[in-house]
Simulated scan of single mutants.
Amino acid sequence: MKDTVKVPWKAYILNAFCTVLIFVALSGMIEAKVIDKYIQGIIMLVFVNIILAVSLNLTTGFLGQIALGHAGFMSIGAYTSAIITKAVKDLPDGSFLQSLPPQLIFGVALLAGGILAALFGILVGIPALRLKGDYLAIITLGFGEIIRVIMENLEITGGAQGLRSIPGYSTKYFGMCYWITILSIVILYMLVRSRHGRAIMAIREDDIASEAVGIPNTYYKVMAFSVAAFFAGIAGGIYAHYLRILGAKSFNFSRSIEIIVIVVLGGMGSMTGSIVAAIALTILPEALRSFSDYRMLAYSIALIVVMIFKPSGLFGRYEFSLMGCIDKILGKGKKRSKETAVEGSVK
Rank of each mutant, 00 (worst) to 15 (best):
M323Y: 12
L131I: 15
L297G: 11
L52I: 02
A53T: 07
G94Q: 04
I304T: 06
S300P: 02
A25P: 03
T218A: 11
D207M: 11
A160G: 08
A298Y: 12
S210W: 09
A117V: 06
E31T: 15
M223L: 15
C177Y: 00
G72N: 00
L314C: 08
D134Q: 10
I150S: 00
E286W: 08
L246H: 04
R289D: 12
V54H: 01
G158K: 00
S99A: 15
G61S: 06
V149A: 05
M268H: 06
G269W: 05
I22D: 03
T59E: 07
A53K: 04
I208Q: 11
A202Y: 05
Y242P: 00
A71V: 02
S81K: 03
V227M: 12
A302V: 15
P285E: 11
I83K: 03
R195L: 09
F143P: 00
K89C: 06
L265T: 14
K33E: 14
G236L: 02
R193E: 13
E339T: 13
L188M: 13
I304K: 01
I200S: 02
K2C: 07
V54M: 04
M190D: 11
V46P: 01
A199Q: 05
W9A: 03
D293Q: 14
T80P: 01
K347D: 11
A235G: 01
D36P: 06
L110Q: 02
F230Q: 01
I139M: 09
M1R: 12
I301A: 12
Y189G: 12
A112R: 09
I257E: 08
S165T: 11
A25G: 10
L45F: 13
M268E: 11
I326Q: 00
S27A: 14
Y38T: 15
T19E: 04
A67N: 14
Q98S: 09
I146D: 01
L119Y: 08
K310D: 05
Y135R: 13
V7Q: 07
A228W: 02
I262Y: 03
S95V: 04
F120V: 08
K6C: 05
K89E: 13
S170G: 06
G41R: 04
S55F: 04
N49Y: 10
K86M: 10
L141A: 04
Y220R: 03
C177E: 01
G236D: 02
N57T: 05
L45S: 10
F17D: 00
L281A: 07
E319C: 13
A118G: 09
L322I: 15
K335T: 14
A229I: 03
L188H: 07
D134E: 12
G233C: 06
I22R: 02
I147G: 01
V5R: 10
E319A: 13
I283C: 09
F96L: 15
G197Q: 11
G197P: 10
G316Y: 08
L52E: 01
D207Y: 11
K33D: 14
M1Y: 10
L110D: 03
F143G: 00
K132C: 12
V20W: 06
S292F: 14
P167F: 05
V7F: 12
I259S: 00
Y79P: 03
L63V: 06
P311W: 02
A11Y: 03
P101C: 04
V306N: 00
F253I: 15
G28C: 10
G197T: 09
S292N: 13
L104M: 14
